[in-house]
Write a protein that binds this DNA or RNA. Structure first.
Length: 558
DNA sequence: GCCGTTTTCGGCCCGACTGTTTTCAGTCG
């Protein structure tokens, strides 16, 4: 069991206890322990072997014993018992916006509803509105959000799928008689939501791969197993497909199985496979088609094929171009670690700079900073900076109020190296008000970056309504940088907006919004998203060196 | 259930908004 799987069980326990109206501090303790284990940068199994599970902050005696049982037996009696009181389908309801533990408990107890399908039906038949606190609007909101969810049903975020795919591929490469292998399909193209894991292997002994797949520790079920093709489910119910091909046709198949259908149909156009026999790489395949190599993230038939013919494809940025992270949190607000720890991890990543951007005062739940604590934080940074080989920018993630005003005065903001302005409240304003609100923030000369512009959370909620073109025009006029939030639940701004913004000359920045040290490594998702938006290093300010970045920041403020 | 330079009990982030009410509980970030 991985840290993430253990954390998932603990989170379910927290949710069930919440629905059962147990002690809220106990609920929080389970959540906190789950979060800490999820983000801990050592394997929980290794910690277990050395009896160090309780070294993880937030994990005490009770949780330690439960984790030990989980790792020893693969299940947990306490968890099983709780699931008899509150089935898993009830927890799905808790994830719908607008539904909290109280309402879900009412729905479950009074109507015995245990799945989203049943809930949808009950809402459509107006059977919910008799319950305490549920009226017409809540019913309508439930119908809307379940139907929205259906649009992405069965899909998971790239952040969930990519690590699972990498783990499976590593297993196959290390145990099986394969000459080469790659993740293919939509994961390789970096799509934010994917439906399954596709892996391509070059092998002359496909039957041996078939015999080894059942021994993979993360396997749940194999549904198809024939030479050339394996299909099944991983333990978290993630679908996977392994395609095995003759090594002489590996690169042909790599291109064929990576591109979107529209891309591959257009480039291959019924050409015979023999034409691509013995190719030495993907570039060779494209060359034989009279094309320049096209990066996986571009293979969507959105104009890349014409440019591959004539030259003029963008020179996409790479993860190695990133020189710093300009949106991070620390213990000063809702981050899990101190500034020194975050900076240490940034140094390990080879960064030149990092910005500390904790929340501002109105976000009190997150321990947002007031002016005095912001000043004290600045002093701490001064002390730390003296010994460090990287530059720490003193920043803030300042809240954008309902009317577009900011949570700090211009004087306070002027004293900082970097200001990110973000929306954390009033998501339901209409399109005109929401757009005006953001434009007012964009126009503020002290605002360098707009954080997670749309507010979307993949698989959970759509972004608020915005006139995106007006936002981009304003960002271009005021030289305000738009963030590509790299967190795989956000990837906000999305690829279309990024590509549009680039066309208007708007600069962007890829930030992780890290709340833990390990979150700094989420950068790669943001880079994939930026590449899907056709961005080049010149478009993304944190590919620039410190001098160029500072020069840009000071030029746009004057 | 966790935690402790206020230490083995008694604390543990809170304030605004929403939809349902008719004075507020539940949800959100």
């Amino acid at each position: 069991m991985t840290n993430q799987e253990v954390a998932r069980i603990l989170r379910q326990i927290a949710e069930i206890l919440q629905i059962k109206d147990d002690n809220p501090f106990k609920v929080r303790a389970y959540r906190k322990a789950a979060d800490a284990i999820y983000h801990f940068d050592e394997d929980i199994n290794v910690l277990n072997q050395t009896g160090r599970i309780a070294d993880i902050p937030g994990v005490g005696r009770a949780v330690q014993e439960k984790v030990e049982e989980l790792l020893r037996t693969g299940s947990l009696a306490y968890h099983e018992r709780l699931l008899q009181d509150v089935p898993l389908g009830v927890l799905d309801m808790l994830h719908l916006p607008g539904l909290g533990p109280r309402t879900v408990r009412n729905i479950y107890e009074h109507l015995r509803i245990t799945s989203l399908d049943e809930l949808l039906q009950a809402a459509q038949e107006h059977r919910l509105r008799g319950l305490a606190g549920v009226g017409e609007n809540t019913e309508a909101a439930i119908i809307k959000s379940i139907e929205e969810q259906k649009l992405s049903r069965g899909k998971v975020t790239l952040g969930e799928a990519l690590p699972l795919a990498e783990h499976l591929l590593r297993y196959l490469l290390s145990t099986s008689p394969v000459l080469d292998g790659s993740i293919v399909g939509s994961i390789r193209r970096g799509k934010p939501l994917v439906s399954d894991i596709d892996i391509l292997l070059a092998t002359r002994q496909p039957e041996k791969v078939v015999s080894l797949i059942n021994e993979y520790p993360g396997i749940k079920q194999v549904t198809t197993a024939e030479p050339g093709h394996i299909q099944g489910l991983l333990s978290g119910n993630m679908e996977f497909e392994i395609i095995m091909v003759d090594p002489d046709y590996y690169y042909f198949n790599l291109v064929r199985t990576t591109g979107s259908k529209a891309h591959r149909d257009t480039i291959f156009n019924h050409q015979h496979a023999e034409l691509f026999f013995g190719a030495r790489g993907e570039a060779d395949i494209y060359q034989r088609l009279g094309l320049i190599y096209v990066a996986p993230e571009l293979r969507e038939n959105r104009g890349e094929i014409e440019l591959a013919r004539t030259g003029g494809l963008p020179h996409l940025l790479n993860l190695t171009d990133i020189r710093g992270d300009l949106h991070t949190h620390s213990k000063w607000s809702d981050g899990a670690e101190g500034i020194a720890e975050m900076a240490g991890s940034a140094i390990a990543l080879g960064y030149e700079y990092i910005a500390v951007t904790d929340h501002s005062k109105s976000l009190s739940i997150s321990g947002g900073l007031n002016e005095e604590r912001l000043r004290l934080q600045g002093k701490e940074i001064d002390v730390l900076q003296a010994d460090l080989p990287l530059t720490i920018l003193k920043g803030i993630e300042v809240d954008i109020m309902k009317d577009g005003a900011l949570d700090f005065s211009d004087d306070v903001l002027a004293g900082l190296d970097l200001v990110i302005a973000s929306v954390h409240s009033n998501f339901k304003l209409d399109k005109v008000q929401q757009t005006e609100r953001l434009i007012r923030a964009i126009q503020n000369p002290h605002v360098d970056i707009i954080g997670h512009l749309s507010g979307r959370l993949l698989n959970r909620r759509y972004g608020y309504e915005l006139d995106i073109l007006r936002i981009i025009e304003a960002a271009a006029e005021y030289k305000t940088i738009l963030e590509i939030n790299a967190h795989p639940d956000r990837l906000d701004i999305d690829e279309e907006t990024a590509r549009l913004a680039k066309g208007y000359g708007v600069k962007m920045v890829i930030n992780t919004d890290a709340h833990h040290r390990v979150d700094l490594s989420l950068m790669r998702y943001g880079v994939m998203n930026a590449r899907r938006g056709w961005l080049e290093p010149a478009d993304v300010v944190n590919t620039w060196n410190k001098d160029r970045l500072f020069e840009y920041l000071s030029s746009r403020r004057s």
